[in-house]
Simulated scan of single mutants.
Amino acid sequence: MPFDEFKNWMEYFKRRPYGWREDNRTYSIMRSFGVKEKPEAIFPTLAALKENRSQRVNLKGSKMLSMMLKAKGGETLEL
C-alpha cells in the first residue's frame, strides 16, 4: 500500500472510528435503561463522529449540486 493511501485511511478512521456502530447500539440500550449522559461523553468514537458531523460540506444550493443535477446519463437525485 502506498504511503499516501495509508495516510488517507488513517484520516478516514479518525473521522469514522472503528466500532462506532457498536458503541451507538450500546448507547441506545443504555438509554433504554435510563442513562441520561450524552453519547459523546461516554464513547470517544461517538464524540469523533459528532465533531466531524459539524465539519461536513453542505451541497444544498451549491454550484457542485447544480452541476450534479445537470449531469447526463446518470441517475437522477430526488430532492
Rank of each mutant, 00 (worst) to 15 (best):
M1S: 06
M1W: 04
P2K: 05
F3V: 13
F3P: 10
D4P: 12
D4A: 11
E5A: 08
K7T: 13
N8A: 14
W9E: 08
W9F: 10
W9G: 08
M10S: 09
E11H: 09
E11F: 01
E11P: 01
E11T: 10
K14Y: 02
K14D: 02
K14R: 10
R16E: 12
P17V: 13
Y18N: 01
Y18A: 03
W20D: 03
E22P: 00
E22T: 05
D23F: 05
D23G: 05
N24G: 05
N24P: 00
T26P: 06
Y27F: 14
Y27C: 10
S28Q: 12
I29S: 11
M30W: 08
M30R: 06
R31D: 07
R31V: 15
R31L: 13
R31G: 09
S32G: 01
S32A: 09
S32R: 05
S32H: 03
F33C: 08
V35W: 10
V35Y: 12
K38N: 04
P39L: 12
E40F: 07
E40N: 03
A41K: 12
A41P: 00
A41G: 14
A41C: 08
A41S: 14
T45G: 05
L46W: 07
A47G: 15
A47K: 14
A47L: 15
A48C: 10
L49V: 15
E51N: 12
N52H: 14
R53C: 04
Q55N: 13
Q55P: 02
Q55D: 04
R56S: 09
V57M: 02
K60R: 12
G61C: 01
G61F: 00
G61T: 00
S62W: 03
S62Q: 01
K63G: 01
M64W: 02
M64I: 04
S66H: 01
S66V: 00
M67T: 11
G73R: 15
G73C: 14
G73Q: 15
G73V: 13
G73K: 15
G74V: 06
G74P: 03
G74Q: 09
G74F: 07
E75Y: 13
T76G: 09
L77Q: 04
L77T: 06
